[in-house]
Simulated scan of single mutants.
Amino acid sequence: MPYSGPPASPVHVPARIAALAEGRDPHPVWQNELGGLTFRIGDSGDSGGRDGDGESLLFAKWAPAGSGLDLAAEAVRLEWAGRFTPVPRVREYGADDAGAWLVTHGLPGESAVAPRWKADPATAVRALGAGLRALHEQLPVADCPFSWSVGDRLNRARAAGIQVSADLLSAAPPADRLVVCHGDPCAPNTLLHEDGTWSAHVDMGALGVADRWADLAVAAWNTGVNYGPGWEDALLDAYGIAPDPHRMDFYRRLWSAT
């Protein structure tokens, strides 16, 4: 099964990432199922954190050529979202024949799936819900140039060669409330302060306007992956909303399909 998480074995540091590190040791902190890698540059903290002063600490994403990972899309979304909410500040984006890279400045906080927070799911899940609500409140729908609508997601999936059912579009429930969604609201993409409150969001490559349940359904679902069963309602409660089984079921099916 494809693996996504902290590297389980040594990884090769691409030449471009090594050059960007300027003599510092790039430490791999994450890999995804498409071959993308994230390296921490300039700090000796643990693999889950973004601790540091935010200026000396950098994170470099690498997407091998042909991986299908669109770091250019993430770069423009970070530049836009950073005007309204805490997200990584872009330092450099580029691409060559070997792949693409995106370098961002570090942020205060530690990943919500760092060991300390996985051992304290009540605190982590509360922060996830509160952080998602803050994101939805802070990003202005009217000014957002990006879409994460059902139709656009299905079109992108088909363009990438993914077979998706035509019935999904017709089965979409009416929007509860349009917001600017994160697009990948899984727990690793939220950072927490030392006191367990929400700090910032990362990995914004799918950000766009959609029904808020497109984020909520997946964020609640993902609590089971990272913290075990029984935390879905706690996340929704921290967000300030009651469960909506119909919309949750639909957006989970859409997530799995696309």
Rank of each mutant, 00 (worst) to 15 (best):
M1S: 10
M1Q: 04
P2H: 08
S4M: 03
P6G: 01
S9F: 09
S9I: 01
H12Y: 03
V13T: 15
V13K: 06
V13M: 04
P14M: 02
P14I: 03
A15T: 13
I17W: 10
L20V: 13
A21T: 06
G23A: 12
R24G: 02
R24Q: 14
P26M: 11
P26G: 11
H27K: 14
H27N: 05
H27L: 12
W30I: 03
N32D: 15
L34E: 09
G35T: 04
G36C: 12
L37D: 04
F39K: 06
R40I: 02
G42I: 13
S44R: 13
G45H: 13
D51F: 07
D53W: 12
G54N: 07
S56L: 09
A60N: 11
W62Y: 15
A63N: 06
A65Q: 13
A65E: 15
S67I: 09
A73T: 02
A73D: 14
E74A: 10
A75P: 00
R77H: 12
E79C: 02
R83L: 08
P86C: 09
P86T: 05
V87M: 03
R89C: 04
R91H: 12
R91L: 14
V103I: 15
T104V: 15
T104G: 07
T104H: 05
G109P: 12
P115C: 04
D120N: 13
D120W: 03
T123G: 08
V125C: 15
R126K: 08
R126N: 11
L132N: 09
L132D: 12
E137F: 03
V141Y: 01
A142P: 03
C144T: 08
C144S: 11
G151I: 00
R156A: 13
R156H: 08
R156L: 11
R158F: 09
A160C: 02
V164I: 10
S165Y: 00
L168Y: 06
S170G: 08
A175M: 00
L178S: 05
G183Q: 04
P185R: 06
P185V: 02
L191T: 05
H193Q: 14
H193L: 13
G196P: 03
W198I: 09
W198G: 05
S199L: 10
V202M: 09
M204S: 06
M204Y: 03
M204W: 11
G205Q: 13
G205H: 04
L207K: 02
W213V: 00
W213R: 00
A214R: 12
D215K: 07
A217M: 01
A217S: 13
V218H: 13
V218P: 07
A219D: 04
A219Q: 04
A220L: 05
G224E: 15
G224R: 14
V225F: 11
G228Y: 04
W231Q: 12
E232W: 03
D233W: 06
D233V: 12
D233P: 02
A234P: 10
L235C: 06
I241M: 08
P245G: 05
Y251R: 01
Y251F: 15
W255C: 02
W255F: 14
A257S: 14
A257H: 00
